[in-house]
Simulated scan of single mutants.
Amino acid sequence: MQLLKSLARAAGTLALMFTGGCASADADPQVAAAPANHGPALWKLADEDTTIYLFGTVHALPSDVNWYDGHIAAAFEESDELVTEIAMDDQLALTQALTGSAMLADGQNLREMMTPEDRKEYEQAMIDLGLPPGALDPVEPWYAAMNLSVLPLMQAGIDPAAGVDMALTRAGASKRKDALETLEEQVALFDDMPISAQLTFLDATVEAVPEAAKSLRELIDLWVVGDAVGLAAKMNEGLEDPALYQRLLIDRNANWAGWIEHRLAEPGTVFIAVGAGHLAGDGSVQDQLAKRGYKVERVH
Rank of each mutant, 00 (worst) to 15 (best):
L3S: 15
L7S: 14
A10Q: 13
L16P: 00
M17L: 12
F18Y: 14
A23L: 13
D26Q: 15
D26C: 09
D26S: 15
Q30S: 15
V31K: 02
A33N: 12
H38T: 09
K44V: 10
D49N: 13
T51M: 01
Y53A: 01
F55C: 00
D64W: 10
D64F: 12
D69T: 05
D69Y: 14
D69K: 10
H71P: 04
I72H: 01
A73F: 00
E78K: 13
D80V: 11
E81S: 03
E81R: 10
E85I: 02
A87T: 06
M88W: 01
D90L: 09
Q91S: 09
Q91N: 07
L94W: 03
T95I: 10
Q96S: 12
L98I: 09
A102C: 05
L104F: 11
Q108H: 13
L110K: 02
L110C: 00
M113R: 02
P116C: 03
E117R: 06
E121G: 06
E123M: 10
D128K: 14
G130I: 15
G134D: 15
P141H: 09
W142H: 04
Y143E: 07
A144L: 11
M146S: 00
L148H: 01
L148M: 04
L148E: 03
L153R: 04
A156V: 04
A156T: 08
D159H: 10
P160D: 05
P160E: 05
P160V: 04
D165Y: 05
L168M: 09
T169N: 12
R170G: 00
A171C: 05
A173I: 04
K177L: 07
E181S: 08
E181R: 02
E181D: 14
E184R: 07
A188Y: 11
D191L: 11
M193E: 02
M193Q: 06
Q198G: 04
L199R: 08
F201Y: 08
L202F: 03
A204D: 01
A212D: 10
R217G: 11
V224P: 05
V225L: 00
G226V: 08
L231V: 05
A233K: 07
E237P: 05
E240Y: 10
Y245T: 14
Y245V: 12
D251M: 03
W256I: 06
G258W: 09
W259I: 03
W259R: 08
I260F: 01
E261N: 12
R263W: 13
L264K: 07
A265I: 12
I272N: 00
A273I: 03
A273L: 02
G277Y: 14
G281T: 08
G283K: 06
L289G: 00
R292S: 12
R298Y: 04
V299F: 03
